[in-house]
Each structure stands twice: as C-alpha cells, then as structure tokens.
C-alpha cells in the first residue's frame, strides 16, 4: 500500500507550493491605452485669426455652445485626445491620420441651417477620400442646433448622407450644441 501514497504526497506538495508562490504578487496597474476621453474642436473664422476652442470631456460633456455667425464661413479642425494624465496628454488624432484608410470622421447636424463640408486641406486616405479632420462650417438664419461628431472605425463606406450609410464601429460619438446667430 505504501508506494501508492507517494504520488499523493507529491501532488499535495505541488498544490501547496503553487498555492503559496502566487500569494504575494501585486498585480501591475493597467492604465487603459487607446482611450479617447477628450474631443477638441478648433474653429477659426475664414480669413481671420479669430479662433475659438471647444472641448468635450468624458464625464462633463461639451464645454460651451459653439457660436457661429450666419453668413460667415469657418474652418474647423477636430482633435481626439487621451487626457487621462493631463501632464502627458496624448494626441490620438495622429494615430487616426496614420490609419486614415480605417477611419472616418462624420458630422451629423440636427438642422439644415448648418452645413459642414470637407475642407480643401482635409487629410485624405489612400483612396483619396477626405477623412473629415479639417472641415468648413457655414450657417444660415438664427437657430439653436447641435452637431454630433463621430469617429468611425473600419467604416463599410467612407461616403454617405447619414451615419447609417457609413456602417463600421463607433469609437467616438459626442454632441456639441451649436448656436447660429
């Protein structure tokens, strides 16, 4: 009988050893990568240096109403950031541009008083599609509206009238209130 207990003792000691060995390790903290928690919209009146910056931050939302004058044209640039550590803010826009083929920024306006088109200096992907980083905004009449900015990953189409036309996965979906005066 005695010899049969040997494997049992061996197995028990393995269990005991493993159980003890992993007890004191403290796991490494993971600071989530690939996070986007800030969208920054820089809007400059065409032909001037009048620049306004609007932010959308995770947790607090849009910083202020975007105000534009009817009849004027504005050049807008969108930026995506990881602001988890404000001392070391990371610009994700660069990654989006580096992978232009797989990304598209889409603007959905809740009213036809505001039009947003791709700017001449917009970034293009390898197929020549402007990806919507740089845009031109213009408004008519007097309205309070909103614009939803989408960053779409791996869109099935890079052109379309609505968000549905683009397919793909939504990486960013933020809404900015807009006042057209």
């Amino acid at each position: 009988m005695k010899k049969f207990f040997k494997p049992a003792i061996l197995a028990l000691s393995i269990i005991t050893l493993t159980a003890c060995s992993s007890d004191d390790d403290t796991p490494d903290q993971i600071n989530e990568e690939e996070v986007i928690n800030q969208v920054v919209l820089t809007i400059t009146e065409t032909g001037t240096t009048n620049t306004e910056t609007y932010e959308w931050n995770e947790g607090t939302g849009a910083s202020a109403n975007i105000v534009i004058d009817a009849g004027k044209s504005y050049e807008a640039t969108v930026g995506f950031f990881d602001n988890s550590d404000p001392a070391n803010k990371e610009d994700i826009t660069e990654e989006v541009i580096a992978e232009a083929d797989e990304h598209q920024v889409f603007y959905e306006v809740a009213s036809n008083t505001l039009t947003i088109t791709s700017a001449a200096n917009d970034i293009e992907d390898n197929a020549g599609n402007p990806i919507g980083i740089n845009t031109v905004w213009s408004g008519t009449g007097t309205t309070q509206t909103s614009v939803v900015i989408y960053l779409v990953h791996e869109p099935t189409s890079k052109t379309g009238e609505t968000r549905d036309d683009l397919g793909g996965e939504t990486d960013v979906q933020v809404s900015f209130p807009v006042v057209v005066n």
């Binding site: 269990i15 493993t18 159980a19 992993s22 390790d25 796991p27 903290q29 993971i30």
Partner: peptide, 25 residues
C-alpha cells in the same frame, strides 16, 4: 477533493482586466 487555482490576467494587453488576478482554493 482539493483544488488550488490561480488566474493570471496578463497586463500586457493594455486593456483593463475583465477578470482580476485571483487564487481559489
């Protein structure tokens, strides 16, 4: 029956762990 179990979620994923490190007896 006796069982000792260790779960190790590798931090190199760069994504917060869905299931944490744990030991179970």
């Amino acid at each position: 029956r006796a069982m000792a179990q260790t779960n190790f979620p590798n931090p190199s994923t760069g994504v917060r762990r869905l299931i944490p490190d744990y030991d179970r007896w």
